[in-house]
Nucleic acid binder design. Sequence first.
DNA 1: TTTGTGACGGAACGATCCGTCTGTCAAACT
DNA 2: AGTTTGACAGACGGATCGTTCCGTCACAAA
Lengths: 192, 192
Amino acid sequence: MARRSGEENRRNVLDVATRLFYQQGIRAVGMDTVVKECGVGNATIYRQFPTKDALATAYVQGRADAWFERMEQAAGEASSPAGKLMAVFEVLAGDTAGPAYRGCPMLNTSTEFPEGRHPAHLVAVGHKQQVRDWFRSLASDAGAQDPGQLADELLIILNGAYATAAVLDGATYGRRALRLARFLIEDSCPGS
Amino acid sequence: MARRSGEENRRNVLDVATRLFYQQGIRAVGMDTVVKECGVGNATIYRQFPTKDALATAYVQGRADAWFERMEQAAGEASSPAGKLMAVFEVLAGDTAGPAYRGCPMLNTSTEFPEGRHPAHLVAVGHKQQVRDWFRSLASDAGAQDPGQLADELLIILNGAYATAAVLDGATYGRRALRLARFLIEDSCPGS
DNA sequence: TTTGTGACGGAACGATCCGTCTGTCAAACT
DNA sequence: AGTTTGACAGACGGATCGTTCCGTCACAAA
């Protein structure tokens, strides 16, 4: 049997867990399933992630990082600050329209682990705070009269689109959120 | 030991389960905990609810019914259709500000049971569809140019407020959502 | 080639899950 | 009063949970 490096194993396990946790929910997936799907022994998994909580936390952290990476890249292609804000909702509309869309991983995790001290919960909460802060910074750059208020409103629309798209038709609510965000940004940012 | 009627038992069990399921999550609460908290034997519970899924489904159904009951009452006290829509978000703002607020039970359930065929999931999805339809009906009465669009937007804000308030500061985002809803309703409804 | 190190797969653990079964006792009816 | 009924509390069962343990084997150093 070919030996894999620790880094390769960690990546493989996290990839498999990410797919399973996102599609079925963290609590619904047992470690046995992760082990079987990885095609390795469970000791290999527990060496990389000492507990299931640690694996779950790494999963959310990975999704949170990926979110910012994709969104900041999309925002980077826009010229104006207002355009950067809108770019976020364009990406969102694309995501929610996909057939495998199952909601926002961070929101899902925070409801699967409501306890405030749980590390995965803290990662999810921290992520949403970062999103809000990023929005406020962009809103400020865009010349919004009240950047904090616009950021809060956009965060509500973002989470609302993620949540609603998971329950009802994803494509519809992604588009609606994009339109709504555009409207709010244009309304509260003089000029562009 | 005093004997209780079946109806009393059912009510008691559902009340206890509602409190536990809402505060800790359905999957996080075992039947043993419900049994202990009810102060009855588990056979008493299983007579009223044949499976945990059935109890969970009854829980969501109860929350969904309670939602419409409270919201329709609040809407009934408003004079105009636009005022009825706003009344919904006033109640929402009050709910999210409470210390025991843990998110929307229907959204939470749909993420705890993502499988589309699960009865509790279906109840949650059905509830959100009903909310949307109700919003559209009120938006139509209020003279909105595009009632379906306004209903979708209000549903996004509703769910967004519920979700965001569960993760960040509840009072803040309840107020923001109320302000945002008011703005949208007034914007898309000529006159009132 | 031999030796030593440590990552490996998989069996096995105790705890807890949901649901069933059993023996008991209160109430209703004759 | 005697009998039947059925709701009750709690013991119990198989299954699955997350986790630990152990014998094995691939690889690097000598």
